[in-house]
Simulated assay, not measured.
Amino acid sequence: MSKRKVLFVASVAEHFHAFHRPYLKWFYDSGFEVHVACRGEFIDSNVSQVWHIGFERSPLSLSHIKSLIQLKAIIDDNDYALISCHTPMASVLTRLSAIVARKKGTPLLYTAHGFHFFKGASAWSWLTYYPVEVALTYITDAIICINTEDFDLIRTKGSSDTEYFVIPGIGVDSERFKPPLSEQKISLRDALNIDKDDFVIIYAAEFIERKNHRLLIDATERLRTQMKSFTVLLAGKGVLLSEIKSYVESCGLNRQIRFAGFVTDIEKYYQASDIVVSTSKQEGLGINLVEAMMCGLPPVATIDRGHGTIIEHGVNGVLFAQDDLQALADAIFEIYSNDERRSKIAKSAIKRAAVFDIANALDAMTRIYAQFLDKDTRSS
């Protein structure tokens, strides 16, 4: 008797690397044959088949037609017990490709890692993505959200026949992300060539417009006259990296700002730091903040649906208005200059971050998977 198959779909392999390995393992351990479809190379011992699809992010790309045809052929040729799709455009194509499969009994679940339409989003985002997502609820069995703003909106406007869920993110490994002992912090700073006496601010984010790195750079320029010795670590890669490096140089901030590049051991950088910052214009949740908070860092972040899901202002972090340069600089300086407040927020941050532990997310998500697998009554 052959194993039942499941299919995970996301636009790029990095999405699976970053978020989905525990879930792929859960299916494998539960006796399923696991398939994934994405652009790029992906290797995982729990995955039997990787389908290479040339997904594009832009909703206007003509290559979507080819991806749609490829994906439909894959879904029609495999009798999947469940399909789990992620990322906007890949999920649009998956749901269109799986219309026939759903009619035959394959449950189709979409996990929204943050809708492109949200309070404060551009008219373009609302006009482009909102009507499509609402329409697609009518051919989706379940929508899973990671923040309450997305959840409240889509369940109100979407199909009443679709089931809606909100889960505590996609999970962070608290065994990997944890506060260092004082001697470990000193050792890490030595290994990373960071002065042991510096106050270290970290922002781990892709270098794209949405992450708004320039705001933190401008705040750094203001803070260099107030703070004696500090370092800003910018970790990540992206299309704007060269442009941001040039901007830092033009501001004369090469001493204060350091580019760590794309790192696979980001926990070491968090554990060597004193505070985490996010100047992002919008986040579905903000996993980088959760990781840093687990390592004992007080967070300073923009007011946003995702950040607001994680941070209670003044309790386990500080929230400031979008693009408010002075508020950002003031928040960083306050935490820098007040050891007692920094320690208090850090302790609360660790406690809050525990909610988003992978064990909690995995439990919530696998309960949903199990619910829909039970509905799949086809013979294996």
Rank of each mutant, 00 (worst) to 15 (best):
V12H: 12
I170C: 07
E209N: 09
L68P: 05
V248C: 12
L68A: 07
G284N: 01
L319F: 08
K72L: 06
L240M: 02
N360K: 00
V276W: 03
F8S: 01
D197S: 13
P298G: 13
A121Y: 14
F115T: 11
S2Q: 10
S159Q: 03
S246I: 03
S246N: 07
S182L: 13
S97Q: 09
S278G: 05
E283A: 06
S187Y: 06
Q256V: 08
F230T: 12
I335W: 07
Q322G: 10
L24I: 03
D190L: 04
A353Y: 05
A18E: 00
L362Q: 10
L127D: 15
L136P: 00
C38Y: 15
R210E: 14
S229L: 11
A112E: 02
H313G: 11
L108F: 09
E206V: 00
A321H: 06
S250A: 13
L319S: 03
Y269T: 04
M227T: 09
T106M: 08
I144K: 02
D304H: 09
F230N: 09
T279S: 12
Y203C: 13
R189C: 10
S229F: 10
S273T: 11
G252V: 11
K344F: 12
A364Q: 10
S280H: 10
I368D: 13
C251A: 07
E41N: 13
Q282W: 12
I244E: 00
F372H: 14
T140G: 13
Y80V: 06
G54V: 03
R176S: 04
D197T: 12
I69Y: 05
I358E: 06
A331V: 15
N316Q: 10
T377Q: 03
H17P: 00
P168Y: 04
A121G: 14
C38D: 12
S273M: 04
L24V: 00
K3Q: 04
V172A: 04
F151S: 08
A349F: 00
Y247M: 05
E149I: 02
T94Y: 08
F199R: 10
A364T: 15
D376Q: 12
F177V: 01
R210V: 15
W126Y: 14
F320W: 00
Y270F: 13
D330V: 05
T377C: 08
C85E: 09
A346W: 06
A260W: 00
N78Y: 11
K347G: 07
D152V: 02
A292R: 07
F32N: 03
P299R: 09
N360M: 02
V12F: 12
L192M: 10
E163G: 12
F165S: 15
D324R: 05
L60T: 15
F27E: 01
V132F: 03
T264G: 00
A135G: 02
C145E: 02
I202V: 12
D195N: 15
R39I: 05
A321C: 00
S84K: 03
R352I: 02
P107C: 13
C295D: 06
V355I: 15
Q70E: 05
D197I: 03
Y336V: 09
D79I: 00
F320M: 04
D29Y: 11
G40T: 12
T264N: 01
I303V: 06
D190I: 07
T94E: 13
K25N: 13
S280Y: 09
D197A: 05
I143S: 08
